[in-house]
Design a binder for these strands. Structure first.
Lengths: 193, 193
DNA sequence: GTCTATACGAAGATAGAC
DNA sequence: GTCTATCTTCGTATAGAC
């Protein structure tokens, strides 16, 4: 089915872009991996590679959005764990070769893809901000703290790939968890005292 | 002079790799920017593009190493500020187009370059660990906290590029600064109580 | 709609003239 | 030692047969 082919290509592109970056990923390889002839990719994605990579970045964004939403009621720590747990799975399954496709396009120099990455990061940040506020972080601190969470997690995934170890992600989870806890405690302290 | 040409090419490569990533940066462009004919680059760098990019990543690593060393006695916050201040300058001067060449090669899939990025990250982490311990962070916590600093700063630079704003770096500086302070306070609290 | 064949440009690398 | 010209491979994209 055409729709299935499209989805397969998008998922494959998210993985390959997260592994090699967008510019180092060829449409030929993407097509071959999905079992689609090169020429047919332009039927499914008239905009070519640009359109496919954009869809892949947005798909990765929406997937993490959903993970955050599902952990929302459990607490701020659960939202953090949802993100780090997902990246842990991706890293382990790929032997530390695959990371985040959003970070990959954010570190290249393609204006449209950069803007797409920005929308995804901002979506994560907005969701995390909501979770933090719901669980007691001051409204004026939550956006900055949420952005710090996104930055630290993305950086940790890159460090895990560099050293082929989960240690950075685990340590960042612990330290950023402490930071979130202290932001909540600080507010509670204010309320009660 | 040959040595000067080599240095010019390395500095140019660090900037271009930090802007576009290693795979999207061509040796032709690197040569043209340094005013060197393509064929001559193989005289200065017999290992070709691979050697030039490796040198560029190591140069960026050593430069930040020195920034950390110089801020060492001033305190842990000064070491953090030295890193974030440098990235702020790079981002501003390039109109948010240029980031960290080390992160760029860490997010691609070239085993040798990945290993080089790992050595650089680990050098930063080791130096930061020393600074943290010197200023009162517990020895068993400092390495993980130092890695969190590296991850958060690298992630923040990527976020700044994505949203074309210094806000992520500024907010990360504030929040990670708080985390470092609390790690120091916690130790002092233990000592005195 | 699906796929083969190909156009056209740019990449890394090298040979060899000067 | 420096640089021009070129080899080979691979990239995106498309034309057009089925």
């Amino acid at each position: 089915m055409a729709t299935d082919t499209r989805g397969r290509m998008i998922r494959g592109a998210a993985r390959m872009v997260g592994t090699r970056g967008a510019s180092a990923t060829s449409l030929r390889e993407l097509a071959r991996e999905a079992g689609v002839p090169l020429g047919s990719t332009y039927h499914h994605f008239p905009g070519g590679k640009h359109e496919l990579v954009t869809e892949a970045v947005l798909a990765q964004g929406m997937y993490v959005d959903e993970l955050i939403d599902r952990a929302r009621t459990e607490g701020a720590g659960a939202a953090l764990a949802a993100m780090t747990g997902e990246w842990r799975r991706v890293l382990e399954r790929s032997g530390f070769r695959t990371g985040c496709a959003v970070l990959a396009v954010a570190t290249e120099d393609e204006p449209d893809l950069r803007a797409t990455a920005n929308r995804v990061f901002d979506s994560w940040r907005a969701r995390l901000t909501g979770v933090l506020v719901e669980h007691g972080v001051a409204a004026d601190r939550a956006p900055g703290l949420a952005r710090t969470v996104v930055a630290a997690v993305e950086g940790a995934v890159a460090l895990c790939r560099a050293e082929r170890s989960l240690a950075p992600l685990q340590e960042v989870t612990v330290e950023i968890g402490r930071l979130i806890d202290s932001a909540i405690d600080h507010r509670r302290g204010r309320r009660s005292g």
